[in-house]
Amino acid sequence: MSDDADPRSAALGTEGLSKHFGGIVAVDEVDLAVESGELRAIIGPNGAGKTTLFNVVTHALAPTSGSVYLDGEDVTDVPQERRPHLGLARSFQSNELFAELSVLENVRVIAQTAADGTFSFSLLGDGRAVRADEARDILARVGLSEHAETEAKNLSHGDQRRLGIAMAIATEPSVLLLDEPTSGMGPGESRETVELVQSLQDDLGLTVLMIEHDMEIVLSVSDRITVLNRGSVLATGTPDEIQGDDDVQDAYLGGVREEL
């Protein structure tokens, strides 16, 4: 099983994408074709290269070889800071924040960047007023309105995860990469967060790639699932297809079951 679609016509596509660290192959010839509006889960054991794949797709790390396509356009060599302006946004596995700034300012400064571009000589007026209404709307969407004036570092872990999603949304993306949005959350909070992702996807017409460990969540919400193992794609398919795949059972799901 693999992606049948053409990566060059997908919302997000990769072709032979690889990342080597010296002799270590972290991402190995990955082909992806994520359709517009799809929710794609990326699963795989620890060290499978999931986060590295995100880093290469967003050009936080330059790929060793291969190509990345966004809406049919080859963006392989587009620098990292340009990509959010082309519609590609991400959240992080760890809580990356502007720690000493208010929650509102965390989102607002990104909304401002989305409007102003990678660099702008905006030297007039009060910065804190620029796009503040849009930022408040986004905070309302993710349920952080009451914490708007809280310093980001003082939020609870779960709220910091949500703030990460809010910041990604503030870039006005078409394709959203979420790196374990539910990590460190209890079952109830995880469920809420996934519902939040789904509602954002529906309302904003997003294409979502989500790294996720909770198999129950993955199987219930994904349109398709890509299984990574040792840096390469083991299988891609619908939840049903993935559950029925022998290779996947052996390499991943089986392993989990045996542990249980």
Binding site: T58, A60, Q80, E81, R82, R83, P84, H85, A89, R90, F92, E96, L97, F98, A99, E100, L101, E105, V109, I110, Q112, T113, A114, D116, G117, T118, S120, F121, S122, L123, L124, G125, D126, G127, R128, V130, M167, A168, A170, T171
Partner: peptide, 21 residues
């Protein structure tokens, strides 16, 4: 100014600012 607020974001988390555009 908006320019100055972006500087503060860079101070707080350079990698995040870059990732966000």
């Amino acid at each position: 100014s908006p320019f100055g607020r972006t500087l503060v974001a860079v101070r707080e988390n350079e990698a995040l600012a870059r990732a966000m555009g």
